[in-house]
Simulated scan of single mutants.
Amino acid sequence: MDIRRETIEGNGFKVPCITLTPATIKGAAVVIHGYGGCKEEQLGLAYRISEVGLKTCVIDFRGHGEHNLSLDENCILDVEAAIEFCRNFGRVVAIGHSLGGRLALISSADYSIGISPAISPIFGDETQNKLKIMRGYRVKEAYFGKINGAIEKLPAFNFKDDPQKSIIYAERDVPEIEHICSNFKAKNSSVIKIKEAMHNDIFTLEATFESVISQVKMYFKD
């Protein structure tokens, strides 16, 4: 496994990333952190994905980690730049947590997996305050701690029982996310609930790794 730090060139911006390259490549994955996260905290998940045979690119989107720009609705452009880079290695799956899950699901990737995705159209004051206290200090923002400012301007996600998209969420998730994902689960076969998991640890759990790998293997089975 070759692991290295790289920079993806976008249209007037640069996306810091870490790439994990297996000996044999049968496709590619873009892994996207959540609000207040960074590429380094997703390396465990990324390593498990790369073991399946995917060249895996873990990015910092704007406002986070080593990315120089502030967080705004154009964070989707960072994801698209990474997807374009990964198309050199075959079909691409985008996999993201929280806000990264929302970005994965609305991206142009061939397949996508949203882990506790921030697909609610708006988050209440209590949730926003918790995010600001617990994660906001790690974010360079254009909207001064208001995550809704960026989310409201992103394209909406209308989930259907699409075999190329799936959602994994936590039993003890953020209320807005748990509510909307539970409703999706009642109607869609590609929605998985991880028991006992919480929003801020779901991407570190073995049950989540197994669910992600199962979906990835299904996407890249031929």
Rank of each mutant, 00 (worst) to 15 (best):
Phe209Ser: 02
Ile122Lys: 12
Gln42Trp: 00
Val79Ser: 03
Ser211Lys: 14
Val92Asp: 09
Tyr47Met: 08
Asp2Arg: 13
Pro121Gln: 03
Gly100Glu: 11
Lys130Asp: 13
Ala150Leu: 10
Leu205Gln: 13
Cys57Ile: 15
Arg172His: 14
Ile213Val: 15
Ile168Ser: 11
Ile202Arg: 11
Leu205Val: 02
Glu73Gln: 14
Met198Asn: 15
Ile95Phe: 11
Thr21Val: 15
Ile32Thr: 06
Thr208Ala: 11
Ile49Cys: 05
Ser116Phe: 03
Arg87Ser: 11
Gly124Leu: 09
Arg48Tyr: 08
Thr24Leu: 12
Lys146Ile: 03
Val52His: 03
Pro22Arg: 07
Lys132Thr: 02
Ile133Phe: 05
Met1Ser: 13
Gly37Tyr: 08
Ser107Trp: 05
Ile18Val: 15
Met1Gly: 13
Asp161Phe: 07
Ser120Asn: 12
Asp125Ala: 14
Phe85Cys: 08
Ala142Met: 13
Ile25Glu: 08
Gly44Lys: 10
Ile113Trp: 07
His33Trp: 02
Thr7Glu: 06
Gln215Asp: 09
Phe209Met: 14
Ile18Trp: 01
Ala150Val: 15
Tyr111Glu: 09
Glu126Lys: 14
Ser112Pro: 05
Phe123Arg: 00
Ala28Val: 07
Tyr143Pro: 00
Glu84Ile: 04
Cys86Phe: 04
Lys217Asp: 03
Ile213Glu: 13
Ser211Ile: 03
Glu40Pro: 02
Val191His: 11
Ile147Glu: 00
Thr7Trp: 01
Glu66Lys: 11
Thr208Arg: 07
Ile177Cys: 05
Tyr47Gln: 11
Ser70Tyr: 13
Ala94Met: 08
Ile49Phe: 05
Asp78Trp: 02
Phe123Val: 07
Pro163Asn: 10
His199Arg: 06
Gly90Ala: 09
Ile192Leu: 04
Leu43Gly: 01
Gly114Pro: 06
Asn68Tyr: 04
Leu205Phe: 06
Ser182Ile: 01
Thr21Gly: 00
Thr56Asp: 08
Glu176Val: 09
Val15Lys: 01
Pro163Tyr: 02
Gly34Trp: 10
Ala46Tyr: 10
Cys86Lys: 01
His67Phe: 05
Ala109Lys: 09
Phe157Gln: 04
Asn88Arg: 15
Phe89Cys: 02
Arg87Ile: 09
Pro155Phe: 03
Arg4Leu: 07
Glu80Asn: 10
Asn200Ala: 09
Phe220Pro: 07
Ile83Thr: 09
Arg135Trp: 10
Lys55Val: 12
Met198Pro: 00
Glu178Pro: 00
Asn88Cys: 04
Ala207Asp: 15
Ser190Ile: 00
Val191Cys: 04
Glu171Ser: 08
Lys153Gln: 14
Val52Lys: 05
Ile32Cys: 04
Asp222Thr: 12
Leu154Trp: 07
Met1Arg: 07
